[in-house]
Every structure is written in C-alpha cells, then in structure tokens.
C-alpha cells in the first residue's frame, strides 16, 4: 500500500483536478445556457401555455407562428429594428475597427512627439464607462440639433479606445519594421503600405477588435435610449425594452418580447461562430507578446 501510494496519487491528482475543473466548467456552462434554453422554450409556446406549462420544457411547438406574429406586429417594426441594429453595429464595428487599426498602427510604428502621452490618454478612455458619456453626448448633440437622428447613435459608436490599445500591441508584435522599410523602398505610399501590408499581418487582431466592438455596440443600450425618440430609428435592444415596459398595459406583448429576444441574439451567435477561429488566433498572438 505504502509503496504504491506515491504512484497512485500522481495519477489520481490530475484526474481529480481534471474532474474538478470539468465540474466547474459544466456548472458554468449550465449557468450560461439555461437562460438561453428557457428563452428558446418560452419562444416556442403560445401565450396561454407560456404561463401554465413547465418553463423548461416544450408544449405545443408554436415558434414559427410566434415569429410570424412578431413580424406582422405594427407593420413589421421589429424587422426595422433588427435592420437598424445591424446598421449601427455592423457599420460602427467595421469603420471603428479601421479607425482603431490605423490609430494603433500609427502609435506603434511612427515616432512623434507626444506619442506616449496620446496613447495614455486613449488608454484612460478605456476606463470611462459608456454610460457616463451618454448624457454629455446627448447635451452636445442637442447643441447642434442632431439628437434623434441615425448619426447621434452611429458617430459616438465609432470610437473604441480598447481597440486602439489592442491594435497597437498587435502592430508592434506582428508588423516588422524591416517589412515597412522594404515597402517604402519599393515606392509604396504610407497609406498603401498600411492597407496592403500592415492590415494583412494584423488581420487576426482586427477580427478580435471587430468582435469586441460589435458586441459593445450591439449591447450599448443607454445611448440610443437617451438619444432616440423616433421608433423607426430604434435598435432592437431599445425596441424590445420599450415593449417590455408596456407589458402591464398590453400583456400580449410579453410573448413578442420573448420571441424578439431570441431572434435578437442570433446575429451575435452567428458572428461568433463565424469569427471565433480568428479570434482565438488573435488572442494567442497577443499572449506571446
């Protein structure tokens, strides 16, 4: 017994910690997936069965009827909200990623006076929560009479200091100075070098930035809440919230909110499934540095 003991524990310990880790992971997975499961099951029920049947298991499967109800409600305003969200989010994430990449690249590859100061100012922007900026932004946009417009939500969503930070780190790590020198000697302009050479090398990082930015803008709720009062401009998050506050008055809305919530998370899921491969690469690249 005593002779075997050390050997056994050597095998056992990793096994134990592995099971332990697995257990923790399983609990976490469950914790995160149960609400989505609940949402999916809830969205598939008629409003009658929603209150009266087991919330975690299916009754009659009415998902498609519910979806068509949702699309028909108020001339399909929900679809309009989805489209808005995709425009706000996709547009801002795409442009914002380009901006962040250019900014980070410039900070990494050019030497100029005040570079570190500028970088530190940008970094401090990471610490300022979006919530704290919404009201000042509203007052600023009020001054130029631009509240309740597409731009009042789109423009503030373009900037992303965390993206600048990531882009700088990645540019330093993955774009060799020698390559830029070579491009310059070959007669390539700085802008061309950036788009043709640097962005290729920074691609995994750009995907990471894009994803971060996409999620941040998609979930940014307070800015549109404060800026917008025209229903046709709402992103889907605000639209669903608006309905949800009216459930007391119009209880039928509850079902629509649930189906709408399910549909509203699908673009995020799709974006992650498509891009997660790049994302992992990008995170790895950062870790090495």
């Amino acid at each position: 017994m005593s002779t075997h003991a050390p050997e056994k524990t050597r095998i056992k310990e990793p096994l134990l910690s592995r099971t332990g880790a697995m257990l923790v992971m399983a609990v976490c997975t469950l914790y995160f997936l149960v609400p989505i499961w609940w949402l999916f099951v809830g969205a598939s029920k008629s409003s009658d069965q929603f209150t009266s049947t087991n919330p975690l298991w299916f009754a009659d499967f009415d998902l498609f009827a519910n979806i068509s109800d949702l699309f028909a409600y108020r001339d399909g305003v929900f679809l309009r909200w989805m489209l808005n969200s995709i425009l706000y989010t996709g547009g801002a994430a795409l442009l914002g990623t380009v901006l962040a990449a250019m900014c980070g690249y410039a900070l990494a590859k050019y030497r100029f006076r005040g570079r570190e100061l500028l970088f530190n100012v940008v970094l401090s922007g990471v610490l300022v929560p979006a919530t704290a900026l919404a009201l000042p932004l509203f007052l600023l946009f009020s001054k130029v009479d631009a509240t309740n417009t597409f731009w009042s939500v789109f423009l503030p969503s373009l900037v992303n200091p965390f993206g600048v930070y990531l882009a700088r780190i990645y540019a330093t790590a993955s774009v060799p100075d020698e390559l830029l020198e070579a491009a310059r000697i070959d007669g390539s302009g700085e802008i061309r070098t950036f788009f043709k050479v640097a962005t290729r090398l920074m691609f995994p990082a750009l995907v990471t930035i894009f994803l971060f930015h996409f999620v941040a803008v998609w979930n940014n709720f307070l800015l549109p809440l404060i800026m917008l009062s025209d229903e046709r401009l709402f992103p889907v998050t605000l639209g669903l919230y608006t309905w949800n506050t009216q459930v007391n008055q119009i209880p039928e809305l509850r079902g629509l909110v649930i189906v709408g919530a399910l549909l509203s998370i699908t673009p995020l899921v799709i974006a992650f499934l498509l891009l997660q491969r790049f994302w992992r690469n990008g995170l790895g690249a950062g870790a090495v540095k």
């Binding site: 940008v122 503030p156 900037v159 992303n160 941040a216 979930n219």
Partner: peptide, 16 residues
C-alpha cells in the same frame, strides 16, 4: 460595454 471616446474625438467634440 467597452465603448468610449478616443482622445482626438473627445477634443473635437468638447471644442464644438
């Protein structure tokens, strides 16, 4: 979540 104003645009907007 993480979204805020970068230095340049902050300066621009406050000037405005």
């Amino acid at each position: 979540m993480r979204k805020s104003v970068s230095a340049v645009s902050a300066l621009l907007i406050s000037a405005l």
